[in-house]
Structures are given as C-alpha cells and as structure tokens.
C-alpha cells in the first residue's frame, strides 16, 4: 500500500480537531502532576512518618506502569462508589503518575539551593509558607526548568494512553480513521507529526523560559 499524501492531508482536520482535548489533558496533567509532586516533596522533606510514607508512595508510583494506574482508577474505584468520568480519570491518573517523577526533579532542584537561603529567610522572620513560596520555589524552578520541561513533554506524549478509556484525543481520532478506512500509515503519521510539533514547541518555550530565568539573576 502506497503512502497517499492527499489522503494524509485530508485526515489533518479531523485529527487536529482533537488537539484541544490532547492539550487540555496534557496541560491539566502538567499542572496536577506539578502540584501533587511539589506537595509530595514538601512532605517528604519534612521528615517523620509522613515523610517516610510519601517517600514510599513516590517510589511505588515510579515503579508501576501508567496503564495500571489508569485501569485501577477507572475500573476499581467505581466498586467503592467513586465514579469519575473517563476524562477526569485520565487527568488524575497522569497527574498522579508523573507527580512521582516530578517530586524527584523538585528534590534535586531544592537540594541545589544553598542552605544559607533558608537561613537568611528564617533570620528575617519569614514563616515556612512564605519561605517556600518566595524564596525556595522560585530558585528551585530556576534550577530545574530543563528536566521539568522534559517531563511536560513526556506527559504530552502519554496522553494517547487515555485511548484505553475512550477519551477522544488525537491518537484515538487517528485510529478511528484508520479502522474506518483500513489505511493506517497516513493518519498515524499525521498524528505523530502533530505530536512532534507540539513537543518542539514546548521545548522551545522551556528554553526561552530558562534563558529568562537565568538572565541577570544567575549566581
């Protein structure tokens, strides 16, 4: 079967029609994973039993395939009376899964901040919360812009997993076309290229951000 460029182009509007869903899932999972991961890392750093427990949870998450999380949330939670829609399940699943990885990134970013920063904040009388928000978090972000961006790209690339929950994202659309027309190469190529474009855009944005963050404020 020959690659039919005209047919490929004709699939673009349908597949692109789902880009909104892909971006919605990716963006909300990035936000969710960052928030949960940062919370995890703060608890882990505070030590004690909570810290140990969260440390275990982070390792557990990172040792499990993402599909296990999605299936568990989707098929097992309803047995306990918790019913989430497919979309919500997908976003929560990706957020939880990547929160484990982002917690590790945040850890590296915080570890790299000299002790003196927290000491100066304490000496000025800043509380824990203010210190975290105004002193630690901004410097952490500056330290980890690149690896964090890589995980955001990973989250984007993980959105097709939501096909197992029948969330209508781009790869799912491409597959629908393929099974209707028995032509796989064209729609899958188109979907792949769109993902590639999005990933490049994110990396570029992160690079810009990094340059800005590192500008005159570098140590």
């Amino acid at each position: 079967m020959q690659f039919d460029v005209a047919f490929a182009l004709s699939t673009v509007p349908t597949i692109l029609g789902a880009i909104g869903m892909t971006l919605l899932v990716a963006a909300s999972s990035c936000v969710g994973a960052s928030a949960i991961g940062f919370g995890f890392e703060l608890i882990r750093r505070s030590g004690g039993w909570g810290g140990l427990l969260v440390g275990f949870v982070i390792d557990f998450i990172r040792a499990t395939p993402v599909l296990v999380w999605l299936y568990c949330l989707y098929f097992i939670l309803p047995f306990y009376g918790i019913r989430l829609g497919a979309l919500a399940t997908g976003m929560i699943g990706l957020s939880l899964y990547y929160s484990g990885y982002l917690a590790e990134v945040f850890k590296a970013g915080i570890d790299a901040i000299p002790n003196g920063q927290a000491e100066a904040a304490k000496a000025l009388g800043l509380g824990r919360m203010d210190m975290t928000i105004f002193v630690i978090a901004p410097q952490m972000l500056r330290n980890i812009a690149a690896p964090m961006g890589n995980y955001f790209v990973s989250i984007l690339k993980a959105t097709p997993y939501l096909a197992v929950l029948a969330v209508p994202e781009m790869l799912g659309r491409a597959f629908d076309i393929a099974s209707d027309t028995y032509r796989y190469a064209e729609p899958l190529t188109v979907a792949g290229l769109i993902f590639l474009g999005l990933a490049l855009l994110i990396s570029q944005a992160i690079k810009r951000l990094e340059i800005r963050l590192l500008g005159p404020t570098a140590r």
């Binding site: 000491e119 100066a120 901004p138 963050l213």
Partner: peptide, 12 residues
C-alpha cells in the same frame, strides 16, 4: 538581624 559571611541575598 543577622548578616552572614556568604551574604545569602536572594539571587532571584
């Protein structure tokens, strides 16, 4: 108030 050897200004 405290002043440190390594300044500890907030670089950002």
């Amino acid at each position: 108030g405290m002043v440190f050897q390594s300044f500890n200004l907030f670089p950002h």
